[in-house]
Design a protein around this nucleic acid. Sequence first.
DNA 1: TCTCGATCTGTTAGTAACTACCAGCACGGT
DNA 2: ACCGTGCTGGTAGTTACTAACAGATCGAGA
Lengths: 197, 197
Amino acid sequence: MIQSHAMRLFIEHGYDATTVDHVARASGVSPMTVYRHFPTKEDLVLHDQYDPLIAARVAARPADEPLVRRIGRTLVETTRALVETTRTAAGPTDDAPATREPPEKDLLLARLRLMIDTPALRARHLDGQFATQKAIVDALLGDAPDPEAEFRTWVAASTCLAAMHVALMRWAQEDGRTDLPALIAAALHAAFDDDFT
Amino acid sequence: MIQSHAMRLFIEHGYDATTVDHVARASGVSPMTVYRHFPTKEDLVLHDQYDPLIAARVAARPADEPLVRRIGRTLVETTRALVETTRTAAGPTDDAPATREPPEKDLLLARLRLMIDTPALRARHLDGQFATQKAIVDALLGDAPDPEAEFRTWVAASTCLAAMHVALMRWAQEDGRTDLPALIAAALHAAFDDDFT
DNA sequence: TCTCGATCTGTTAGTAACTACCAGCACGGT
DNA sequence: ACCGTGCTGGTAGTTACTAACAGATCGAGA
């Protein structure tokens, strides 16, 4: 609840112009409570649950795939599942009971837009990718502490996420008009010359 | 001068425990002057001149190379030139007039160490990589605004830098004992299965 | 030599993110 | 009825960073 109030204010008035006090007041709680749930202001925008999703999916893929393909296809699939969270609610006849929360796709787009023109958010998000990398590496490595394999896994995760990040930026620039999973697959293809659909 | 005082204090007492006032006092200037030259505290650690170096070198490489190879080899070469800045000053007989500045390699290592255990620095550094990416893309693209080529160039730059980042982290973990250019080349090889030496 | 202008520097006062510490308050189980 | 436990709120402080203004330094030109 606090987070959705925060996002609304950030979108309306900009990230820097919105203070944590504003968010607290709009949410009907004290500033302390905001800090309790979101240790930093940036977390109000960037906090999400994608990492476990990705980790579960990458572990589920066949283990004989090359590392980069395994991770890359996981990213494309997970993203497709996420953005399609929209469509399941709104069919050709949109008489669905209309949950008030915006669809995942719009939320993602809003967050990307905030990130693009707020340096602090951009930086923090990239650091969040570090956590995603760690989740992927942990999911793939189990507990086989071969340092050589660990190194290769980190490289694969890091480069795949970097490619995805470029796709995300491009997608946000185009206001989310293109198909995001296809764009990510295209970025991965450009980097690794493999098929990620 | 301010920056070297800052690095010394950061290394001695830690980044968070050192205030900008401390840095100012140690440098014999007012806090305002510090802010004038380094807009944020993080810049005291992260400010460097590597981007133009990399941009110049990547533009100088043969244009018929594949993008990833062209960028990757540039990174390996530039890094080699940087870390070898050390050795030229200290030959087998070290009776050189001994500039007081630590060699580039030690400086790099110190910065990486600070980055690793200071989240804010880690995040800011990754955002700095964004600037490096832009420098590389600009150097390679000239002014041919083909959006498709631009996309591929961004992907190549982004993934190469991601691989290098993994190598840098590994190198810092090993206290700089291994050969950094070789480690970067190994990371790039793990990602793209090409030869980057 | 004097003056002008520009750049660098310092002071003051303020904002906003974040922390430490303490105190109340609701709630569920024994 | 009682007692811990976890959520919440208030207070006071630290610190990064900004805005607006004033003085210092110093080279160029009359």
